[in-house]
């Protein structure tokens, strides 16, 4: 019963979702909204579990002075600071000008932007590895990447401006992106679509149980 009830609920909801896509009549027309609302409610309740778990792990680590406990202490301090200020400012805590808003805009956002900015360096290191001409495929990738990159910057346009329109580097870059790249991407998308159908069907039919801890 521990697995049968979740499987039954999954099957009913899954079939309901398929049906509602083809039947616009009430109550099917409202099903998507209802489930979305319920998902939000369950998610909102679950965030308490998440926050409690985060605190439990961090407090335990700090209290027992485990390795790298300083990071856990920072988590506790940050969590408490944001929570206390948010509660103190009441319902409008997210309004512009509040302390919560200030912390969000001038502490969290810059930290977040810093993490995102690291991406630039990682792109460079990953590109260096990916574009090494180790074999035929990698060489092809390198050549295509070279033309796409140079075709998308002004210098590429200037270098090939003597060539007839349609044969310039920018045109070549566009061709690579709109023909072979788009074709490959569409093939992947078709595969993904079919994979989703197959996975959904396995879950609805109860064949797939690994996500609830079942299966061999």
């Amino acid at each position: 019963m521990r697995q049968e009830i979740p499987l039954l609920i999954t099957a009913i909801v899954g079939i309901g979702f398929v049906i509602q896509y083809f039947i616009p009549h009430w109550p099917f027309s409202r099903m998507s909204d209802w489930f979305s609302d319920w998902f939000s409610i369950v998610g909102a309740c679950a965030i308490i579990l998440g926050a409690l778990n985060l605190m439990k792990v961090s407090i335990e680590k700090t209290y027992k002075r485990k390795e790298d406990w300083g990071y856990a202490a920072v988590i506790i301090a940050s969590f408490l600071l944001m929570t206390i200020i948010g509660i103190a400012e009441g319902r409008g805590f997210r309004n512009p000008g509040t302390s919560f808003d200030w912390l969000y805009n001038f502490v969290y956002i810059p930290l977040s932007a810093t993490m995102f900015a690291i991406l630039a360096f990682f792109v460079a290191s990953a590109s260096y590895r990916a574009f090494r001409a180790r074999n035929f495929e990698a060489t092809l990738l390198l050549i295509a990447a070279f033309f796409v990159m140079i075709g998308r910057v002004p210098v590429g346009h200037t270098l090939s401006s003597f060539m007839p329109i349609g044969w310039q580097l920018s045109d070549l870059a566009s061709w690579v992106m709109t023909v072979p790249q788009a074709a490959g991407q569409r093939a992947i998308m078709i595969g993904i679509g079919l994979g989703i159908v197959s996975t959904s069907l396995r879950i609805i039919l109860g064949l797939e149980r690994a996500h609830i801890g079942g299966g061999k």
Partner: peptide
């Protein structure tokens, strides 16, 4: 790549029913 992610569970289980899907 793409569909292989969705095929993984069936592939790893080796169950005929899953492979059939």
């Amino acid at each position: 790549i793409g569909e292989e992610l969705f095929a993984a569970s069936a592939y790893l289980s080796g169950e005929p029913r899953m492979l059939g899907s």
